[in-house]
């Protein structure tokens, strides 16, 4: 655990955010198992990464996600009612039911979209940083991607652009060790994504992604650098996806139970809970009560989603163009 001095309010916000992610993902899994959606990518286990990053962000900053982005959305403050409705394809969803689990977006909240094409969002995030720089703001752009995307050429092109132009962007690789079933040790030459930053004139920092305090510290410095005009940073957060790639797959087809246990023993939520109790920031009873509140919020979101209507058939051909004439 890091020794960073953090105020109680921020710590409790982070804990509540991580709990919300965990409980939302668990409920979303149940909705998927009930056949209400298919092919959902769960982020249980990875709560600390977006939480430790997004805590440093403010209105106007943009984040960009992946196919596995529910946790990014929640950390950036999206309404879980609208998210759950989107998962169920409802008219009240963040995207009016048109995008679904892999494409949640909320421009007002600064979430410029989850994306189903691996690596595809990285240059788009670079463009948001370009806009922030051109307009003379101190806003930043954050792009989350996985260890799989680390091998897409577009990451390298984008890091080079950000490097030569000193763009205010943070490249956050959530290394959860598997691209579908392919282990990162197999797919990433040199077995380090962070080391690749050296070629693009930016710091590359590997951090324990199972510790939100460690992520907090590293991301804080990266965001400060970006706001100050000192350029981009690449963060490689070493984390773990507890569930399969998309839900229907059994991860024990390609990894051992011992490995899973090793990471679950370092569960980010439990670690933070322990820290809060040890440092007398909250009692166990208070934290359990918070969990109950979160569970009720998730239940409310689920009721809202299930009670919402499907989109009107006319919506099939709306939004194709802003204006088509």
């Amino acid at each position: 655990m890091s020794a960073t001095k953090l105020d109680d309010k921020t710590l409790l916000w982070m804990y509540r955010t991580m709990l919300t992610i965990r409980r939302f993902e668990e409920q979303a899994r149940r909705e998927a198992d009930a056949g209400k959606l298919r092919g959902m990518h769960s982020a249980v286990g990875q709560e600390a990464v977006p939480t430790g990053v997004c805590v440093h962000l403010r209105d106007g900053d943009y984040i960009f996600g992946t196919h596995r982005s529910h946790h990014h959305c929640i950390a950036k403050g999206l309404d879980i009612k609208l998210m759950m409705a989107e998962l169920l394809g409802k008219a009240t969803g963040t995207n009016k039911g048109k995008g679904g689990t892999m494409h949640i977006a909320d421009i007002e909240k600064g979430m410029l979209g989850a994306n189903g094409i691996v690596g595809s969002n990285i240059p788009v995030a670079t463009g948001a940083a370009l806009r922030a720089q051109v307009q003379g703001t101190d806003l930043v752009s954050v792009v989350f991607f996985g260890d799989g995307a680390a091998n897409q050429g577009v990451l390298h092109e984008s890091m080079n652009l950000a490097g030569i132009w000193k763009l205010p962007i943070i490249f956050v690789c959530e290394n959860n060790r598997y691209a579908q079933s392919t282990p990162f040790e197999y797919a990433v030459a040199g077995e380090s994504v962070a080391d690749r930053a050296a070629g693009y004139d930016m710091p590359g920092i590997a951090v324990n992604g199972m510790s939100v305090l460690d992520v907090y510290e590293v991301a804080g410095e990266a965001v400060r650098r970006a706001r100050a005009g000192d350029g981009p940073t690449l963060i490689e957060a070493m984390t773990y996806r507890y569930m399969g790639h998309f839900g229907a797959d059994n991860p024990l087809m390609y990894r051992t139970e011992d490995e899973e246990d090793e990471f679950k023993a370092r569960d980010c939520n439990r670690q933070l809970k322990g820290y809060l109790m040890e440092n007398a920031i909250a009692t166990e009873a208070e934290l359990d009560a918070m969990d109950e509140e979160v569970l009720e919020e998730v239940a409310e979101a689920t009721r809202f989603a299930n009670d919402s209507p499907f989109p009107d058939p006319s919506e099939l051909t709306t939004d194709v163009y802003v204006s088509y004439r």
Partner: peptide, 10 residues
Amino acid sequence: HTSVPYSRPL
């Protein structure tokens, strides 16, 4: 002439 929608009824 539209992208493929997510929502099942659409």
